[in-house]
Simulated assay, not measured.
Amino acid sequence: MISEDDDPTVLEARIGVGGVRLDKALADAFPGLSRARLQALLAEGAVRRDGEPVAGGSAKATPGLYTVTLPPVAPADPQPEAIPLAVLFEDADLIVVDKPAGMAAHPAPGSETGTLVNALLHHCGDSLSGIGGVARPGIVHRLDKDTSGVMVAAKSDRAHVGLSALFAAHDIERTYIALTRGAPSPARGRIETLIGRSSSDRKKMAVLRSGGRNAITDYVVKAVFGAPARPGAAPMAARVACTLQTGRTHQIRVHLASRGAPILGDPVYGSGSPAAPVRAAMTDAGLKRQALHAAVLGFVHPVTGEALRFETPPPGDMRVLEQKLSQL
């Protein structure tokens, strides 16, 4: 169990059983901290057991009360940046954009600038409301940095509250287009699993037998490319439309991979290598990210009650890749 003492930057947890690597034991005891982060804190002397400093994540853990002292967090203060935006809709309360691949939704370690938030702060200017006491757009859902497609952000407090409620209730139409290695079987279906942090790599999500959160993806194989290597085998690649019924982290990427059809170009969940002709097509298309595009976003405007629906085609890298796959 994690608790905090009087200093909110100090976390403590008791490890009752030793014998495993210390960094792994600490990651299990402090689920809010990644294993890499804990290794850095160990190197900085920020971890103690029963009041004594410990170091070296590869050492075996021993039972005791562990404390982790976190350094002060630098306040997030994103600045406006003149970044072009493909605006699909905008009024006083919200804005809908077609986010390019390579743009993070908001500042985070490794992506402090060049994010959608930075662009929106510049684009919206004084029209932004003071959400949480700070003038900034309300990011109510996210696309992975290297996933392209339609996103909505709130400009007013009332829109922020209303959009958040819609997403929490899954009362949003969201369909993605993915280009996959092989194809899920059957050609149409529903994937319903529990998704949570992987026990072997805490930076990854995984399908779990217990724990995690319920995740539901409906999918349809729209096209297949490349003859199967043998009768009954999967094609070389496919175009798959995925409709989210829930919105878990990396949900589509994890679900398609769990069906043996990972998204092409996915650096995290794309285990196994595509067939040589598919690899050549990816190279020719210049694909340098997962081939996933948020194509459709539909919802009821939280202020006006108007039914809104936006649809955009995949960007150039995915379109060229699909064209080349169709020639296999």
Rank of each mutant, 00 (worst) to 15 (best):
Asp126Ser: 14
Ala154Val: 10
Lys99Ala: 00
Asp91Trp: 13
Lys145Phe: 02
Val117Tyr: 01
Arg181Ser: 12
Val150Asn: 04
Ser156Ile: 08
Ala153His: 07
Thr115Phe: 00
Glu90His: 08
Gly102Gln: 10
Gly162Val: 01
Lys204Asp: 06
Arg188Trp: 05
Leu166Cys: 08
Ala104Ile: 01
Ile177Met: 13
His141Lys: 12
Ala178Val: 02
Lys145Pro: 07
Pro184Cys: 08
Gly110Tyr: 11
Val87Pro: 05
Val140Lys: 02
Thr147Leu: 12
Thr175Tyr: 02
Ala168Gln: 14
Ser148Arg: 06
Ser111Thr: 14
Ser200Lys: 12
Val134His: 14
Gly132Ser: 13
Asp146Tyr: 07
Ala105Leu: 06
Gly189Tyr: 01
His106Lys: 06
Pro184Met: 07
Asn118Val: 01
Ala108Met: 08
Arg209Phe: 04
Gly110Phe: 05
Arg213Phe: 11
Gly149Pro: 11
Asp144Met: 04
Gly182Glu: 01
Gly211Lys: 10
Gly102Trp: 15
Leu116Trp: 07
Cys124Asn: 10
Val96Phe: 07
Pro109Ile: 02
Glu90Gly: 02
Val97His: 00
Val152Met: 13
His141Tyr: 13
Ile172Gln: 03
Ile139Gln: 04
Thr115Asn: 08
Val207Ser: 00
Ser111Cys: 12
Val152Leu: 14
Pro107Lys: 03
Leu120Ile: 08
Phe167Met: 13
Gly182Tyr: 13
Leu120Pro: 03
Val161Lys: 09
Ile131Met: 15
Thr193Ala: 12
Arg136His: 15
Ala92Lys: 10
Ala187Met: 14
Gly189Val: 02
Ala187Asp: 15
Asp201Pro: 00
Asp91Glu: 06
Ser111Gln: 13
Gly162Trp: 01
Tyr176Pro: 01
Ser210Gly: 05
Arg213Asn: 13
Ser111Arg: 09
Ser185Ala: 15
Ala119Tyr: 10
Ala119Val: 03
Leu166Asp: 05
Ala119His: 09
Gly182Phe: 07
Ser129Arg: 03
Leu163Asn: 01
Ala101His: 04
Arg190Gln: 12
Thr175Trp: 02
Gly182Ile: 03
His160Val: 06
Leu143Thr: 02
Ala105Met: 15
Gly130Arg: 15
Glu192Leu: 12
Val140Ile: 15
Leu88Thr: 09
Ala104Phe: 04
Ser127His: 07
Cys124Met: 08
Met103Gly: 05
Gly138His: 04
Ala206Gln: 11
Arg158Pro: 10
Leu88His: 04
Ala119Gly: 08
Ser198His: 08
Ala153Ser: 14
Arg136Tyr: 05
Ala165Gln: 13
Asp146Val: 06
Ser198Asp: 14
Ser127Leu: 05
Ala187His: 11
Thr175Arg: 10
Asp144Glu: 05
Asp93Tyr: 06
Ser185Asp: 12
Ala187Ile: 07
Asp98Cys: 01
Met151Asp: 01
Glu173Val: 15
Phe89Trp: 14
Asp146Met: 11
Ala105Phe: 06
Ser164Leu: 06
Phe167Val: 05
Arg142Glu: 03
Ser210Gln: 13
Pro100Trp: 09
Arg209Ala: 10
Tyr176Phe: 10
Cys124Phe: 12
Pro137Phe: 00
Ala187Val: 08
